[in-house]
Design a protein around this nucleic acid. Sequence first.
DNA 1: CACTAAATTGCAGCGACTGCAGGAAATCCG
DNA 2: CGGATTTCCTGCAGTCGCTGCAATTTAGTG
Lengths: 209, 209
Amino acid sequence: MAEADEGVAGHAEAARGRPASTSRQDVARVALDLFARLGYDDTTVDDIAAAVGISRRTFFRYFESKPDVVWGEFDAELGRLRDRLAEAPVSEPMMDVLRRSVIATNRFGAGELDELRIRMVLISSVPTLVAHSAVRYEEWCEVVAGFAAVRLGGRPEDLGPQTLARAALGAAMAAFGCWAADEGVDLEDEVDQAFRLLATGFADPSGAI
Amino acid sequence: MAEADEGVAGHAEAARGRPASTSRQDVARVALDLFARLGYDDTTVDDIAAAVGISRRTFFRYFESKPDVVWGEFDAELGRLRDRLAEAPVSEPMMDVLRRSVIATNRFGAGELDELRIRMVLISSVPTLVAHSAVRYEEWCEVVAGFAAVRLGGRPEDLGPQTLARAALGAAMAAFGCWAADEGVDLEDEVDQAFRLLATGFADPSGAI
DNA sequence: CACTAAATTGCAGCGACTGCAGGAAATCCG
DNA sequence: CGGATTTCCTGCAGTCGCTGCAATTTAGTG
């Protein structure tokens, strides 16, 4: 998690060797456009490479895999979430920190929201991407479990932190899914609601439900 | 979800045509053994087919994909969970029904537990399987969301049912993961604990955590 | 101009998966 | 008995994602 995405498009100061012919962002933009128009499965890596003007081999130097394109700068976001959780005052209740941090990490400008919606619709509807997402979510869970272990006591692998982390992931996925499916909904509100549900618990105190 | 696994190894009464040379279970047993010994990624479909004594092409008539082998009769279990949830008396609180049903669906005999542990360790540690699992878990969530929609009101796609379903999935995954990682733990206890956590919620009433 | 560093590329190859068309083994019926 | 039918098995050709390797291009540097 240190020197994240160096090697390709690393914004080094001294441009010594042959300059990169394109950038991660450019490839992602072109690819997402193709995905939206042709469908994810019907867009081959060859198609993307051809559209960008690079070889297939080079595509795999910009992205580890085809599904990775849809995830964009997930690693960076994950790092920011980790930082927010770590920097929160210990006096603030755990679930408040979590809710606030997740919301803050996913606050996007109006210009980015359209692209984000495309990404989320793809991630939650294309089986190949649903599958790949699990690997990414695993990293997300590790971050949250680490935080939960500090607050609850015990190790991140213990049942408490694990349950919280994976349940929190579920809440986030539900919020993003509902937002992606319905144009007239605010992302922040959805996340807020989902995490409040999680904090309160699903048992009806009266036992009536 | 009707005629589930007919076509291959369908236990028909009148054995009319050419008899099947093996069965889904046999293939799964052999494959799991290879996975445990060689590792999942280092076992090719050719290896499995050769070990069973069928052709690679035939393997794909028994299982849709290589990762599907690890999941065994997941479809059947899912059906049983759906039935349990549907048959529960409306007077019983939602979270109690859910916890009880998940536990009941995952009650295995001592003989099956070893194989289950192998399956769960694979599913939660091999990236390819982690990825594939997401697709299966999606079906699980649909079942739980359907149940939650009935209890909470609204549609299964709404935020409430979705949050509960995905959070419940998280609790189940945490419980299974902890059980698979630690030999000295009872599966039922773990699931019970995780779902009680979920019902209660993670917020400390005093706000001290 | 030679040297070095970095990016790109083609190629050969693996492994999962699919559609198709044909072959093999069993039963049914005339 | 023998053909028709049914069901299953198989090989082949091909697509697609992905990887390692070795060569090539394109820049800056001494």
